[in-house]
Design a protein around this nucleic acid. Sequence first.
RNA 1: GGAGGAGUGGCAGAGUGGUCGAACGCGCCGGUUUCGAAAACCGGUAUACCGCAAGGUAUCGUGGGUUCGAAUCCCACCUCCUCCGCCA
Length: 423
Amino acid sequence: MLDITFIRENLELVKAGAKKKHIEVDLDRLMSVDEKRRALLVEIETMRAKQNEVSDMVVKASPEEKEKAIGEMRVLKETLQGKEKEMEEVMHEWQLLMVAVPNIPDLSVPDGDSDADNKEVKVWGGKPQFAFTPKSHVELMQDLEMADFERGTKVAGFRGYFLKGDGALLSFAIWRYAQDFFLKKDFTPMIVPSLVKRVAFLGSGYLPQGEDDLYKTQDGDFLAGTAEVATMGYYMNEVLPKEKLPMKFLSFSPCFRREAGAHGKDVKGLIRVHEFFKWEQVIVCEGTHEESVKWHEWVNRNTEEFIESLEIPYHTVLNCGGDLGLGQVKKYDIELWVPGENTYREISSASYFHDFQTRRLNIRYRDENGKMQYSHSLNSTAIPTPRILVSLIENYQQEDGSILIPKALQQYMGKEKIEKAKA
RNA sequence: GGAGGAGUGGCAGAGUGGUCGAACGCGCCGGUUUCGAAAACCGGUAUACCGCAAGGUAUCGUGGGUUCGAAUCCCACCUCCUCCGCCA
């Protein structure tokens, strides 16, 4: 959410931002509704002031005066109730418009419609040269009994999967390695709820848009697609001590995504599943652009370093305007090389929001002058499983169908290679 | 799931229809005093919105309602506590 005063004073800037993001929102309508809102507010508050004034007087008044005043107030009350009703309708529309206003993308964000227009800003690692035709992770994992997709769909439905044997162990190894790796960087680890109340989704910007992408319970709660939702909700409606900023969380949670708009896409394997696990970096920092930028670069670099330590080739892209979410100011995606598809696939997404989320969630701190300020927030994937297995397994495959374990993971896996059990 | 109790400012806690944004205390900030400190004393100490300002409005878990007027009465919901049941 943006500040209404800011929108009013920077209307053209906000309009240009929405256009760059390819997000439709009727800002002129918002301006006229807001004007109505403020006019009504003045009317209502004036009436209430009168009401309060008379109310004070009634106590001390003589019986006749009292009678007269109360009579007058009955009339005023009726008018007031009419105005309040009107205000309610205006506020309803105002709020719908307000939550639809996108945050303004950074100047460095390239123009573009979709992820196809994202700009490559970094390439790392040599792509493996195979003297044989590389297999897909699906084939490799099935051959090594690391995953079972048929039974996955039998039990869990479309996009269902089981990880078993070394597939399960490899997931645990990655979680534990990621834990050790990232906690060296001074994060507070958390295991956070996935079953979360509506208000946290509204606050983090996943609702009211995007309800189709979420699983919903019969109690009106939703299953989160990322630990970001609960982690951001953690401090909602709180005033944080300035000296504790920045807060750095490494949050673990199961993640659930309906993938409502992606029916035909990535139907095979572990790229796109309804249910997965993720370590997520979440930062709440002081409310300046410089802080946001600094931590944004930092969290993104953390994930790059992690991938480098696993020695998997990747590139980093700067997302274009059309590929930014409602609240995001700027976003980097890290994409790992997937030999079986001969392309890069997204593994991480790092974005900052300025005070877009914290304004909705009401997360503040007191600055050095004792003034209340909204914090800034940002987040980035640390590592998702099982998606990381796709590129890990495909890049490390050997001609005999075995898979080498990256050096950094060997101590967590207890071996250097995954291969077929000897008969 | 059943029975009962409770939610007030940073904390603690009064207030059961009107002068209550809210007593008293603690804490915190500033001052007096002091060589310095403690104690004592004096003053201050929520947030948001509207407004150039003066000022106004709202907020006592949340949302409705009753009333000229609600922290206070009524209804619903949420959260917490105690007891019983169930359970990893």
